[in-house]
Computed example of a mutant assay.
Amino acid sequence: MGAPTVRLRRLAAELRQLRKLAELTREQVNEQTGINVATLYRIETARVRPQARTLTSLLDVYRVAEPKRSELRTLLKQSATRGWLHTFPSDLPERYASYIEFESEAREVLNYECLFIPGLLQTERYARAAISGGDPGLAREEVENRVEARMRRQAALTKAEPLRLWAIMDEAAVRRVVGGHEVMREQLDHLLRIAELPTVQVQMVPFDAGAHPGMTGSFVVMTFGEAAGPDIVYVDSQAGDLFLEEEADIARYNLVFTHLRAGALSPSASASLIAAVAEDLRPG
């Protein structure tokens, strides 16, 4: 099926909750509807999109009345609508594809990065150097596919209703010279320009801030409109990518981001730090 849309994810969560409220196991739902237990599991985890008649059967068993019934039918129709990724000519890793689908429908992204410039703020040359350097085993074609996808993602910042981005970086992210001095200087200049957008906030956590809660790793919190469902936390690590949806996890990462925001330099002071680092990279 490919990466789930945000609305399919919300529909799955709604159906899980309705079954629990009805105090039914998947086996009991199977007995009353004939829907295979494995199929029901896949529906409830957004791995498949239910057919309209399947949804109707589930709503009947769960005794769902209007207007909730119509709301979920509408959600099913909307769940088939995909973003630009479905026309992307090359395959991307499943988790990355899911991330892109979620990001394309998010209203706001809170992004903390330890070592890299956030993907939404990267230049093409920096992205190419970061992707190839971060995963030396990638073939050149795979690197270029990911660079292209990263560049297309950035349209979210300038669309009619732009994505709101709050990016916080450790100072290491701008100090580490990725791709050489020229590429890094170009990247920092770009970062300063894009930080001037009214919907983009950029803050730096300086080295002299000492230990801080972001030192355990980078993460992203994505928030959506009411119609698209609850927030998602995305954590990227060497052990694998994780999507966290439990309220406790979301609250924990929001709290970490709040602490980072309070301990970081102001946006204007952050811009001064970035400009100073860029100046050090200029020849002569």
Score class of each variant (00 low, 15 high):
Ala3Arg: 14
Pro4Glu: 02
Val6Met: 09
Leu11Cys: 00
Leu15Cys: 01
Leu18Lys: 08
Ala22Cys: 03
Ala22Thr: 04
Arg26Leu: 02
Val29Phe: 06
Gln32Phe: 04
Thr33Ala: 00
Ile35Lys: 04
Asn36Gln: 13
Arg47Cys: 01
Gln51Pro: 00
Leu58Arg: 13
Val61Cys: 02
Tyr62Glu: 03
Glu66Asn: 13
Glu66Asp: 13
Pro67Thr: 07
Ser70Asp: 08
Glu71Arg: 13
Leu75Gln: 14
Leu75Asn: 09
Leu75Thr: 09
Lys77Asn: 09
Gln78Met: 12
Ser79His: 01
Arg82Gln: 07
Gly83Leu: 06
Ser90Pro: 01
Asp91Arg: 12
Pro93Phe: 05
Glu94Val: 06
Tyr96Ile: 09
Tyr96Gln: 04
Ala97Pro: 09
Ser98Glu: 11
Phe102Glu: 01
Ala106Val: 02
Val109Gln: 08
Leu110Phe: 12
Asn111Asp: 15
Leu120Trp: 10
Leu121Asn: 11
Thr123Trp: 15
Ala130Trp: 13
Ile131Gln: 07
Ser132Val: 04
Gly137Lys: 07
Leu138Asn: 14
Leu138Thr: 07
Ala139Leu: 09
Val143Cys: 06
Val143Gly: 10
Glu144Lys: 14
Glu148Val: 03
Ala149Asn: 10
Arg150Lys: 10
Ala155His: 14
Ala167Asn: 07
Ala167Thr: 01
Ile168Ala: 05
Arg175Thr: 02
Gly179Ile: 04
Gly180Asn: 12
Val183Trp: 11
Asp189Pro: 04
His190Phe: 15
Arg193Lys: 15
Arg193Glu: 15
Pro198Arg: 15
Thr199Gly: 07
Val202Trp: 08
Gln203Tyr: 14
Met204Thr: 04
Gly210Gln: 14
Ala211Trp: 11
Thr216Asn: 07
Phe219Arg: 00
Thr223Ile: 00
Ala227Phe: 07
Val233Glu: 00
Gln238Pro: 09
Gln238Cys: 04
Gly240Gln: 13
Asp241Cys: 00
Glu245Trp: 07
Glu246Leu: 06
Glu247Met: 06
Ala248Lys: 13
Arg252Gly: 00
Val256Gln: 13
Leu260Met: 09
Leu260Asn: 10
Ala262Met: 15
Ala271Cys: 12
Ala271Glu: 15
Leu273Gln: 08
Ala278Met: 12
Asp280Ser: 15
Pro283His: 02
